[in-house]
Amino acid sequence: MGADVRVVTLQDVADRVGVSRATASQALTGKGRISAATRQRVHAAAAELDYSVNLIARGLRTARSGAVGLCVPDQTLSFRYYMDVAFGAVERAQESGMLVTLLPPAFAGPGIIEQLDGFLMIDPVDGDPLVQRLLAGRKPVVSGENPPAGDREPWATVFGDHEAGMRLLLDHVWEHGSRRPAVMLPDPAMAWGREMAAGYAAWCAEKGIETRRMLGWFDTTMDEVRREMDELFAQSDHPDAVICAPEGIAIVAVEAIRGAGLVPGRDVLVASYVESDALSVTQPTITTLDLHPREMGRRCMDELIRALDGAEPGRRVEVPIDLIVRESTSAR
């Protein structure tokens, strides 16, 4: 029989760095007022010693499972934005020794929700039974983007200002000569879709121009988008700019513009509201917004950790939105 393998403890990590056990614990869980240098040294020592948090023991001490749920809209897991949000949330959770369980609607069966300590819901959809169930429960819920109206308020909300984001793109194409911008927007059942539409309508009213709005949902096929785009650019008074969401639709718009005998980036400016990997390599490269999805995920998890630590509810945390200018809007 081999010799017993000694389990590395938190005290071992603390001794390696020369700090107290409490300081080592706070450094590993992201709590306390600890310098970045000390926090980094503790994490380095934990890695060297192959130390991992004993989630079962922690759960017995705190009456928690050490796991939280992440709820995203159905049919979104193939989109880069939602994967980046999930990665940001998981990274932050790992820093605090927590596990994250994905809760798409099909997997939120009886018994799963009750075992989790709290929840993140990203882009909650109006009328979603799972969203309603989470908000009606006793566990803390953090909403990534504004929650549906009429439901109970979440413990905290992390959001982007999508009216301002839409105006940022519209002002940009206006400055490059557009006077007839059209938009393809997501279904208004989610807050960011409503906010984008409100920003577009208000901007057009201020400029004294007609709104030209199409709807695109996550389950809208690319063939359906292409048919709608083809009809739009076949008109004699076709738009001279188009801003597209959800993710990936801008590439279809480029193809439709070419199909109409027009030049994307010259005859029709093109912008995507959401960044994706293809936008920086397609021809022309496509102007977009950086919605900072990983930061969205991290800040949502930050708020949930604060909730589990007993902080007061009601916080609203804004994630910045930045313009990325590329060839599709800068040729004029």
Rank of each mutant, 00 (worst) to 15 (best):
C244V: 02
Q235K: 15
I209H: 02
G297E: 04
R266F: 13
R227W: 14
A278E: 13
R294S: 14
L269K: 12
V270S: 10
A245N: 04
P239Q: 03
L289A: 04
C244D: 03
A253M: 04
E275L: 14
V225C: 10
L289D: 01
I251V: 11
D267Y: 15
A234R: 12
D219C: 05
L232R: 00
D219M: 11
S280E: 15
A241N: 03
T285W: 08
E224D: 07
P239W: 02
A234L: 11
T211Y: 02
V270H: 11
L291E: 01
E224Q: 13
V274E: 12
R299M: 08
I257Y: 11
V252M: 06
R299T: 05
R226T: 14
S272M: 03
G208V: 04
D223Q: 09
P284E: 01
P284H: 03
T211P: 09
H292M: 07
R213G: 01
T282P: 03
D219A: 14
R294D: 13
I286C: 09
M296F: 15
Y273S: 12
Q235V: 13
T287F: 09
D267L: 10
M296C: 13
R298W: 00
F233W: 08
A245M: 08
M214Q: 02
G265L: 13
G216K: 01
G261T: 05
R266Q: 14
H292Q: 09
T288M: 00
T282H: 07
E210Y: 05
I286Y: 08
I249M: 10
M222T: 12
G265E: 07
T221K: 00
L232C: 04
V274N: 00
I209K: 00
P239D: 03
V242G: 04
G208C: 07
V225S: 06
R298Y: 06
S280N: 09
A271M: 07
I249Q: 03
A256P: 14
H292I: 00
T220S: 15
D277M: 13
M214E: 10
L269M: 14
